[in-house]
Computed example of a mutant assay.
Amino acid sequence: MKFSPNNSAQNPLFQKVPRRGKLRDTHITLAHGSGGKAMRDLIDDIFISNFDNSILSQLEDQASFNLASFTQHGDRLAFTTDSYVVDPLFFPGGDIGELAIYGTINDLAVSGAKPLYLSCSVILEEGLSVETLRRVATSMKIAAQKTGIQIVTGDTKVVQRGAVDKLFINTAGIGVIPAKVAISAHNIQPGDAIIINGELGNHGAAILIARGELALDTDIESDCQPLHDLVETILNVCPGVHAMRDATRGGLATVLNEFAVSSNVGIRLDEKSIPVREEVKGVCEILGLDPLYLANEGKLVVVVKGDNADTVLSAMKSHPAGKDACIIGEVISSPPGIVLLNTIFGAERIVDMLVGDQLPRIC
């Protein structure tokens, strides 16, 4: 477990002594990444105290598991990793720590997997406030507890001032996919229905406003939330879901373009059916942005057979994370690889893949 400096956990003499390091410093220094006592105190006080569990407490350089604990949930492993560099670290509706937990959980969930374990690696800038780091770690602990997932291994690095912006986090996740669940973008077929679980663009708009670059007074909050329970609810009524993906960077438009290319089908959307808050529309109109490309951190795109659409929609609406779910389009055979939008004005336009980056550092 790389949170353990000096590899002391490999020495049985050290394992007999409880770790009680206490961090006295108010800001991160290069010494906190040196592998010595300062680093041990940082890890003990900030990370071990928040993330402690039976696997993490072994303090090895890796987490080890009994394979039987996996096979009871399914017959395939799902493994994912993501890095989080959001600016600002704290924003309406969430923070970088919560985002790191929920984002990786959601990447596992859209495969149909039950999320089980996470790793956590942090890169800290020299001079970062210890209180800021403590807030982030506490937020991660609370998010992990809410979702029932365990953080079981990790790593800490400190770099010179200016080499990173305050704090970057990488999390990797492991989950188990139940037997007979085979969710893939390659499964999509003409006649399928496309469902979204709620309003688009709230996260991207909340981040933009939190940066203070616009003199706007709104109550837009990030939609940052875990989706694994919602996915389980969907699979309980429709194990044969064709495709699922969370619409993060690049938004709904990018996900649907990826779907269309993967299965060589067309997709037609109905603009009137796509839920977007008026405040988000206003932000987009001021800045010339398109809400279809804005980032989300709690939005799930589901593709199911048309015959199953109403059943899945009803199940989604019964869950708090899907209460605003709606059918927004359908899969068509032609033109292949293209996403079309029937606009509110009665015209039709192509919704292409995002070119460039509307908002950098949003997750």
Rank of each mutant, 00 (worst) to 15 (best):
V255C: 10
I267A: 13
S222Y: 04
A210E: 10
R277N: 08
R211S: 01
V261Y: 03
E221D: 09
R249D: 14
D219P: 00
H203K: 11
E199F: 15
P190M: 04
C224W: 00
N187Y: 02
I220A: 02
L230P: 02
S222R: 04
I188W: 09
I194W: 06
A182P: 00
N170Y: 08
E258G: 13
A260E: 02
I267G: 14
S262N: 12
M244E: 04
G250L: 14
K180T: 06
M244H: 01
T248Q: 10
E221A: 14
C224M: 08
S273D: 13
I194D: 06
A179K: 15
V181R: 02
A210N: 05
A185Q: 10
H186P: 00
V241M: 05
A206M: 06
P178N: 05
R277M: 05
K272V: 07
H186W: 00
I196V: 15
L230W: 02
S273M: 13
L252T: 00
I183K: 00
G204F: 03
L227Q: 06
P190Y: 03
C224V: 09
D192W: 03
L269I: 02
A206P: 13
I234F: 06
V176Y: 07
P178F: 07
D192A: 11
Q225G: 00
D246K: 04
